[in-house]
Measured scan of single mutants.
Amino acid sequence: VPQRAWTVEQLRSEQLPKKDIIKFLQEHGSDSFLAEHKLLGNIKNVAKTANKDHLVTAYNHLFETKRFK
């Protein structure tokens, strides 16, 4: 089981690129989880459509539901 890579403050910070969060989610989330949160596909394309709040919610949801690969 992966550990949380970032704190809530870090997740919301401008310093953390959306692409980093997407990469983490794609590496650790199950396909059904990723599909549900519309996070499947090319990281660049996902970054265009997903806002930061959406990614933070998905990140927290992944750990709450433990839907890891």
Rank of each mutant, 00 (worst) to 15 (best):
V1Q: 12
V1L: 12
P2W: 03
P2D: 04
P2M: 05
P2R: 04
P2N: 03
P2T: 04
P2K: 04
Q3M: 08
Q3H: 12
Q3F: 07
Q3P: 09
R4K: 08
R4I: 05
R4D: 12
R4W: 10
R4N: 09
R4H: 07
A5Q: 15
A5G: 11
A5W: 15
W6D: 06
W6I: 06
W6Q: 06
W6S: 06
W6C: 14
T7Y: 03
T7M: 03
T7A: 03
V8Y: 08
V8R: 03
V8P: 15
V8L: 10
V8T: 14
V8N: 15
V8S: 11
V8D: 15
E9I: 04
E9H: 03
E9A: 05
Q10V: 05
Q10F: 07
Q10N: 04
L11T: 02
L11M: 08
L11R: 01
S13E: 05
S13N: 06
E14L: 08
Q15P: 04
Q15K: 14
L16H: 05
L16C: 15
L16A: 06
L16Y: 05
L16K: 03
P17S: 09
P17R: 11
P17N: 10
K18E: 10
K19S: 15
K19I: 14
K19V: 13
D20L: 12
D20E: 13
I21G: 00
I21S: 00
I22Q: 01
I22L: 09
I22K: 01
K23V: 08
K23W: 06
K23I: 08
F24I: 02
F24P: 00
L25C: 01
L25S: 00
L25M: 07
L25A: 00
Q26W: 09
Q26S: 04
E27N: 09
E27V: 07
H28R: 05
H28K: 06
H28I: 07
H28W: 15
G29K: 00
G29P: 00
G29Y: 01
G29D: 00
S30H: 09
S30R: 06
S30V: 05
S30P: 03
S30Q: 10
D31G: 12
D31W: 15
S32A: 11
S32D: 12
S32V: 08
S32E: 11
F33S: 00
F33M: 02
F33N: 00
F33L: 04
L34K: 05
L34I: 05
A35I: 12
A35H: 13
E36V: 08
E36H: 09
E36A: 08
E36I: 10
E36K: 07
E36S: 07
H37S: 04
H37Y: 14
H37D: 00
H37A: 06
H37P: 00
H37T: 05
K38L: 10
K38Y: 12
K38F: 12
L39V: 04
L39P: 00
L40P: 01
L40D: 11
G41E: 04
G41S: 05
N42M: 12
N42W: 12
N42F: 11
N42A: 13
N42Q: 12
I43S: 07
I43P: 12
I43N: 06
K44A: 14
K44C: 15
V46T: 05
V46S: 04
V46C: 06
A47E: 15
K48G: 09
K48P: 06
T49Q: 11
T49W: 15
T49A: 09
T49G: 09
A50G: 05
A50M: 11
A50H: 09
A50F: 08
N51D: 14
N51Y: 08
N51I: 08
N51F: 07
N51R: 07
N51P: 07
N51Q: 09
N51T: 12
K52R: 15
K52N: 05
K52I: 07
D53L: 06
D53T: 07
L55C: 05
L55M: 04
V56G: 03
V56W: 03
V56K: 02
V56A: 10
V56F: 05
V56P: 00
T57I: 14
A58T: 06
A58C: 08
A58F: 04
Y59L: 03
N60D: 11
N60V: 15
N60F: 13
H61M: 14
H61E: 14
H61S: 14
H61D: 15
H61N: 14
L62N: 00
L62E: 00
L62V: 03
F63P: 00
F63N: 01
F63R: 02
F63L: 03
F63I: 03
F63E: 01
E64V: 10
E64C: 10
E64T: 09
E64Q: 11
T65N: 10
T65Y: 15
T65F: 14
T65P: 02
T65R: 09
K66R: 12
K66F: 09
R67Y: 05
F68H: 02
F68K: 02
F68Q: 02
F68E: 02
K69D: 04
K69E: 04
K69W: 06
K69I: 06
